[in-house]
Amino acid sequence: MTYLQAILLCVGLLHWTTMATMMDKLADSKRCGDAECSYVLSVATALGDFIAPDCRFINLKKGQMVYVYSKLVPSEGAGVFWSGSVYSERYVDQMGIIGYFPAVVVNETQKFTEDTVEKQTTDMDFYCI
């Protein structure tokens, strides 16, 4: 690595860390299909539009298919949030973006597994770029 590449890498990392925001945790634990939370738990359909209130969440459009990767375990008085990603030819700009949404705005249409692993959430679960 050249000296110039090292400087550019450091500047890039500095820029990335100054653009990122640590957000409050929505829950202390989550349920996933595997230890890395990379398996899809289920597929759901959005029952209505949901506008993301901040960068932890994703926007949903009524009728949109959502792949669910994890389900947050709510603490007392907290809402139930799931983590997932939307896929649709109509909403290409959102494809592959993973974020949270309220469980009440979707209808789970197909479950892939009933066996889940409960994991502690980390600060990085709620890190926004």
Rank of each mutant, 00 (worst) to 15 (best):
I58V: 15
G33E: 03
D49V: 02
A52Q: 02
S42L: 08
V40S: 09
D24N: 15
K62G: 05
D34T: 02
P53A: 11
A27Y: 02
T45P: 00
I51V: 13
V66I: 15
L26N: 06
A44K: 06
Y67W: 15
V43E: 15
A46Q: 09
G48H: 05
S29M: 04
D34S: 03
E36V: 07
N59Q: 12
R56A: 09
V40G: 05
D49K: 02
C32I: 04
A46T: 07
D24C: 03
P53W: 07
F50L: 08
Y67V: 04
T45E: 14
C37Q: 00
E36T: 12
I51Y: 09
D28S: 13
K30V: 00
D49M: 08
S38P: 00
F57G: 04
S38G: 01
S38W: 00
I51D: 14
N59V: 08
G48D: 15
K61N: 11
Q64E: 15
F57V: 07
K61P: 00
I51W: 03
A44P: 04
L26C: 10
I58F: 07
G33V: 03
L47R: 12
V40K: 09
A27V: 00
Q64R: 13
D28T: 14
G48W: 03
P53H: 12
F50Q: 08
R56H: 05
K61M: 12
D49H: 04
G63W: 12
R31S: 09
F50R: 03
A44D: 09
D24W: 02
S29V: 01
A46S: 15
Q64K: 08
V40L: 04
M65F: 11
K30D: 00
K62P: 01
R31C: 06
L60N: 06
K61Q: 11
K62R: 14
D28G: 14
K30P: 01
A52S: 15
R56C: 11
L26M: 07
G63V: 06
Q64M: 15
D54I: 06
S38Q: 04
C32V: 03
M65V: 13
A44M: 04
G48Y: 05
Y39L: 13
G63M: 10
C55S: 13
I51R: 10
C37G: 00
L47W: 05
R31Y: 12
N59A: 08
C37I: 00
L26T: 06
D34N: 15
M65W: 10
M65N: 09
L26F: 06
T45I: 15
S29Y: 02
I58L: 08
M65T: 14
A44C: 09
V43N: 08
Y67G: 03
K30N: 00
V66T: 09
N59E: 12
D24A: 13
Y39R: 09
T45L: 12
V43M: 13
A52K: 05
N59D: 15
I58P: 01
Q64S: 04
V43I: 13
V66W: 09
E36Q: 12
D34L: 01
N59T: 14
K61D: 04
F50I: 05
Y67T: 14
G63S: 05
S29R: 14
D54T: 07
F50W: 10
R56P: 06
A52G: 05
A52D: 06
D54H: 11
M65I: 14
V66P: 05
G63T: 06
L41T: 03
K30R: 11
I51N: 08
G33S: 12
K62H: 10
N59W: 11
